[in-house]
Design a protein around this nucleic acid. Structure first.
Lengths: 335, 335
DNA sequence: TTGTATGCGTTATCAT
DNA sequence: ATGATAACGCATACAA
């Protein structure tokens, strides 16, 4: 049996509530404090998470809900785990498999597990989840959104300046004298991708370049079959000379599609992609990419949540927008 | 405030302990049962996880400790989450970052969180962790190992027949008339890789092919710099004509290394790799691969654990060995 | 500052 | 089969 505060109290010659107060940072007379500390030491006492949880209705854990366990989200999650563990929080992970119905289930699930707060990677999450999240906020359960804000729910969010990132990526292609530029994007019902498309259009417009709507390809590109859509770009009468791929998978998919058509990057087609993970390095040539600030996303989301957990609701709700950067390598050809 | 069994009891006109008994599957008179069920329904009652946890000293959760959050482990974890959620278990994930000291910390951490059982992906875990795991077992906390057994600790394990998988992969190359075959492996202090190397040697020996020790390359290949080791293979006086890469990262690394030396696969060098994840499809040509039974690993580990949680200790400890299969595509040239 | 008493929601023991 | 009551380990309102 593990030691309880009763054991500690007895050994220290005080009453249990004094031990409890010591543990919770209330004033305890110096002499008693020392005795308690020593008793804790010799007994190897650890506070019982469940018992405190029963009082507080919180298990000192953070729900982290992800659309999937892909490398982008898991890399951020690994950082969150490291940061939040320092404040003694555990992570209750949930994968809603890009399924908004499953998200509702998971929202119930983590709440029933008495989390202290929630970090929701809200890609693809829309107003349908707002009422449920509103319930969280009413219960003073802090919620931090990552990736996108949700209309109708006012809480903290950490997002990336997607439109601007897109603008700059496309602009880069334009500066290399490309004028027929395609975009391989993901479904626009997801805010992030709507923004990325917006940035693309904005850049084209800024430089007075017409956009052929057939240059706008949409898909998830996690299955082989979808590459066909990308390949159709190459079959156009006057095909684009450059492609902007707005996700990691779109980037990979574009490379596959080019391979299959025996097109060389960048000789036959220029490419700027999105996100860098290890496997990208196995591609030839090294790709030019838009890079999201993964560490900063994790740190910012964690800081924001910890602040709210501390009861500090200054500037609530707060949306923090982070910037991307570009890594220029060898997949863009100057025309 | 959420409803408690007191509320249910009052509404149903019975005492709380009757409700408790109903919830725990003990006999309750039909009339009362109906009233209780109705009360639960109208109140939206949910059992308080913490309160039952306080009695049981278990939070109905499974600790899942991973060496890292790479795609291989996360794909399995996603399945585990799905399977174990059906039995109402939550997952307490921990990433020990390939660090055995951090593993000790995480073992403490999950135990302090009153997990019901542990699934440990034990790649690289050795006898140093055995005493700590032994404590788990003594406390009747079931532990299922995945990937490798640990000397000195007898508990259930789910492993893959690595040596045999290697043997077959190398044999495949031999059947295509390759005789100078290199292996790009990971450190041999990890059981899995020791086994894969063993299978390689066994195959070469079986077919009376000498092994040049310079053909055995070892590394993790998660950083760019390491590819140099692989490239040295190509600079040997009489270089290998085929490479067997024993991990996902070794496979990607080998492709990068070949690219950088301007060697074509399979024209200049044949390759058989390990594990399939989406990004692999972006490589040209499609690779021949050894595939691990990811779903089966998850299902088997979950089943084993659930059985032990049920108190069924038949055939304990049990090591279940699963087989790999091969996907032959276009990265091997017949000599 | 410290002690006493009570409650958090549930399960288990003992009666009935 | 059901009712009453104690116990799980801790936090807190109140009194001293």
């Amino acid at each position: 049996m593990a030691a309880t505060i009763y054991d500690v109290a007895q050994l220290a010659g005080v009453v249990p509530s004094t031990v409890s107060r010591y543990l919770n940072g209330y004033g305890v007379r110096g002499k008693n404090r020392l005795k308690i500390e020593q008793a804790i030491e010799t007994l190897g006492f650890k506070q019982n998470l469940i018992a405190t949880g029963l009082k507080r209705s919180r298990l000192r854990s953070i729900g982290v809900l992800l659309p999937n366990y892909t490398i982008f989200f898991m890399t951020i999650t690994a950082q969150l785990e490291r940061i939040l563990a320092q404040s003694n929080y555990s992570l209750l992970l949930g994968n809603f498999e890009d399924d908004l119905t499953l998200l509702q289930t998971k929202l119930d699930f983590v709440e029933e597990h008495f989390i202290d707060g929630l970090i929701l990677f809200s890609s693809g999450v829309g107003t349908e989840s707002a009422p449920r999240l509103q319930q969280y906020l009413q219960k003073k359960l802090p919620v931090v959104l990552v990736e996108q804000e949700i209309p109708g729910i006012s809480t903290d969010a950490v997002i990336v300046d997607n439109a601007h990132a897109s603008f700059r990526a496309v602009e880069k292609l334009i500066h290399e004298n490309h004028t027929r530029i395609a975009i391989v994007n993901s479904p626009e019902h997801i805010y992030v991708f709507r923004e990325r498309l917006r940035g693309y259009r904005h850049a084209m417009q800024t430089y007075n370049l017409p956009v052929d709507e057939r240059w706008i390809v949409t898909g998830r590109f996690v299955d082989m079959g979808e590459y066909a859509q990308i390949q159709q770009l190459f079959d156009l009468p006057n095909p684009p000379t450059a492609i902007f791929a707005t996700t990691y998978y779109a980037t990979l998919g574009t490379v596959v599609a080019a391979h299959q058509q025996h097109l060389k990057i960048p000789e036959d087609i220029s490419l700027i992609g999105f996100d860098h993970f290890d496997p990208i390095d196995a591609l030839e040539p090294p790709l030019s990419l838009v890079l999201q600030p993964i560490e900063a996303i994790a740190q910012t989301a964690a800081d924001l949540l910890l602040q709210r957990l501390d009861g500090n609701y200054a500037n609530f709700p707060q949306t923090i927008t982070l910037s991307t950067r570009m890594a220029m390598r060898e997949s863009i050809r100057k025309l």
